[in-house]
């Protein structure tokens, strides 16, 4: 298979002009798997075993990777990045393309990525596990957690999985829990949508938005952890987790286009 892939690669590369470089093996499951192995050997030392970043930047769920063209990414690997620690690689071009196929797969939207779970079962879990208490889909649900209506199109599978299993890995802007103690003894709890030394905007569990004048505030107590529970791995089990991820991966906010009348 690899030999056949190599011949294909050589032919297509020869046919491409320099300014039109496209990854000839993009999306190929074999290339992605081969790229994963190459990545572990050559890239994980700096970018992390799961592409979570380290000395080098995170490569999964990366806006940079999603927005960069194939040629730019190829050049970054082939020649390194001047002024950074990213070195040039001695790997042959076909292996660079395979690594890029793997990195791209980490950044594909969940909606476009085949997943193992049962989306219908995951939908039932979404309700029974209490997800909707904090998250909305299509306008229904709680308001303290991020909206999930368009999740499948905006996040990768890896990112969704991380959010469920490691909710404290990174904060989602506007969703950190806070308790506001006022000078007059009053108290307000919710998530901080914004905060400066002079004003704070808090969304409470009922969905009311509070504009807080800091001159009235005695103390802010910030949640050390996300409001999202950390035990979904054990609560859901492997199958349940896959089902939930399958369900969430299907969440796309855009309805199909209506058919235009014939003209």
């Amino acid at each position: 298979m690899f030999r056949a892939l190599g011949v294909l690669l050589a032919c297509s590369l020869a046919a491409q002009r320099r300014d039109e470089l496209r990854n000839p093996v993009d999306g190929s499951p074999e290339a992605i798997e081969a790229g994963r192995k190459l990545y572990v050997n050559s890239c994980s030392g700096c970018h992390g075993a799961n592409a979570e970043g380290g000395r080098g930047p995170r490569l999964h769920s990366s806006r940079f990777v999603r927005n960069a063209g194939d040629e730019r990414l190829f050049d970054s690997l082939k020649s390194g990045i001047k002024g950074s620690d990213m070195p040039a690689t001695p790997l042959p071009d076909d292996q660079i393309w395979r690594i890029l196929a793997f990195v791209r797969s980490l950044n594909a939207s969940a909606y476009e990525t085949p997943v193992a779970g049962d989306a219908a079962a995951g939908g039932q879990l979404f309700e029974s596990a209490g997800c909707r208490n904090c998250h909305q889909i299509a306008g229904k649900g709680g308001v303290l957690g991020p909206d999930l209506t368009n999740l499948g199109l905006t996040r990768s599978v890896a990112s969704i999985r991380e959010s469920i299993l490691k909710p404290n890995e990174r904060w989602t802007e506007g969703h950190r829990g806070v308790t506001v103690i006022f000078r007059d003894g009053g108290k307000l709890e919710g998530v901080a949508r914004n905060n400066t030394n002079y004003a704070l905007q808090v969304l409470d569990a009922r969905g009311a938005l509070h504009h807080v004048d800091k001159a009235q505030v005695e103390e802010l107590a910030w949640s050390r952890k996300s409001l999202m529970p950390e035990d979904y791995q054990t609560r859901l089990g492997r199958q349940g987790l896959n089902d939930l991820i399958a369900f969430l991966s299907r969440q796309a906010g855009r309805a199909p286009a209506p058919k235009e009348e014939a003209r």
């Binding site: 003894g185 569990a205 009311a208 938005l209 504009h211 807080v212 009235q216």
Partner: peptide, 13 residues
Amino acid sequence: MRLFLVALAATVA
């Protein structure tokens, strides 16, 4: 996880 609005003092809801 269970959050309550305890007081509305000094805020504009």
